[in-house]
Design a protein around this nucleic acid. Sequence first.
DNA 1: CGTTCTTATCGTTTTCTGGTGTTATGTTAT
DNA 2: ATAACATAACACCAGAAAACGATAAGAACG
Lengths: 266, 266
Amino acid sequence: MTTDVDGDTAELSRPARRQAEIAAYVVKHGSVSANDLVEAFGVSVMTVHRDLDELERQGVVRKYRGGVSAQPTSVFESNVAYRLNTAHAEKAAIARHARAMIEPGMSVMLDDSTSALSLVDLFEDITPLTVATNFLPAITKLAQLRDITLLALGGIYSATHDSFGGMPCAEAVEALHTDLLFCSVSAVSPTHAFHQEEEIVLVKRAMLRSARTKVLLVDHGKLQRTALHRLAPLTDFDVVIVDEKTPKDLIEALRDHGATVEVAEL
Amino acid sequence: MTTDVDGDTAELSRPARRQAEIAAYVVKHGSVSANDLVEAFGVSVMTVHRDLDELERQGVVRKYRGGVSAQPTSVFESNVAYRLNTAHAEKAAIARHARAMIEPGMSVMLDDSTSALSLVDLFEDITPLTVATNFLPAITKLAQLRDITLLALGGIYSATHDSFGGMPCAEAVEALHTDLLFCSVSAVSPTHAFHQEEEIVLVKRAMLRSARTKVLLVDHGKLQRTALHRLAPLTDFDVVIVDEKTPKDLIEALRDHGATVEVAEL
DNA sequence: CGTTCTTATCGTTTTCTGGTGTTATGTTAT
DNA sequence: ATAACATAACACCAGAAAACGATAAGAACG
């Protein structure tokens, strides 16, 4: 068991992992040819093309004759962060911690984040429950469960995030008011939460207005980073849950700025 | 090729078929024990219980210690009609016929029907396209396709139909206006379209208001039947598409009452 | 017009997941 | 307390689907 801090690409099918790695490669090099990738990844040219098609479908790269180029970083970051979903164990710990806040009968809103997805796995035992989300994988999972009222938040599908967004989604959110909101973001500074894409920010803001208790799920790695759009001050959240691997001084920094921080134990 | 009018349970996974048969058995006998089913279907107790769990999740039966009992017929009928989705070939033919009405660039709305689902399989070649639907299997499929703008119509999930409904869904529908609507119903008389459940009727009515051209997809078998709630007169639809196996006199009856009927060839 | 790049098609391999029974453990009724 | 019933937890199998490469056909570029 190696301790590769962030390269924890486990729990991902081989092609999916390779695709994420290709995406990283493309962004690093700006633009590359298919043959470069054949060499770099030791697979046939056909496979490379198939991978690139998929990445293009997700909006991460642009194909042209002779190669591919990277898309605006914002899209890329969002997507790759999501795809190579690192720190699975930490997220599970955060989910377990968050779970304690949920009582049977409550209504819960989830955003499109893998952190939220971990939480879904724990819902089976907290029934009955009403869950609202715009995240397709979560919807699929929840549809299988008994005694859960699933409220799908529709909208325009984004292949990059595998979720629904846009104005229709924001409107759907605004028509609700749940007891709890669990959400995540792409970056957290000592004072604010950030996200790469404006579209997503719109929906998340709407969610923040539509819940009584707001919880931010943050695995370390999100911290110390920053992203284009400022979503909200951390004080807008009732609780910020971080994992154990978060440096102590960073936690202190958050608290110094008035945030309520809880640490999830592994 | 036998001519079993309605018992065409082909194209259904073995467990799914057995579950549908169990459902029918339960409804017929009012209430039965797990062991009865073990004998009747020649599978282990465990499997029976698993099947019953699934049926309960779909809202078709109620479990209690010692056996299961049937739920109100309306739910049962809706569900079983959906599950044992008969006449696959006819639906494909209807879908092919409907496809001719769609041009690249259009916006299309689909309801939660297997007929509509067949149509989705043909969308890949009519891009770009905007598709709105409240049917989870359709959403899942469409999310995979390129060059299709998917607009998910959210709402309260119904395990019986595998789709979203209720007021939130109706509102989402009302916010739109598409070029086309393809929908189906559970029963069609010479003058009207019917459906079993009020909830569904609400959504379908909203859909009818939100599309310019409305198309009703009807496989024979839907005809001559009737159901609880009257959805709309057939003249509200711009076109009614039936399959080749529809008796000629029934088609005439529809036309006599003013409906525009087209016959899909196999 | 040929070279290079891309896509389509097919057959093979591999991987997965769905479906199942068995055994063991838990739960409810009598 | 005990018997009947229900669930949980494995392990297994099979069929299906994904993944891949080789080859061939097709498009864009110079």
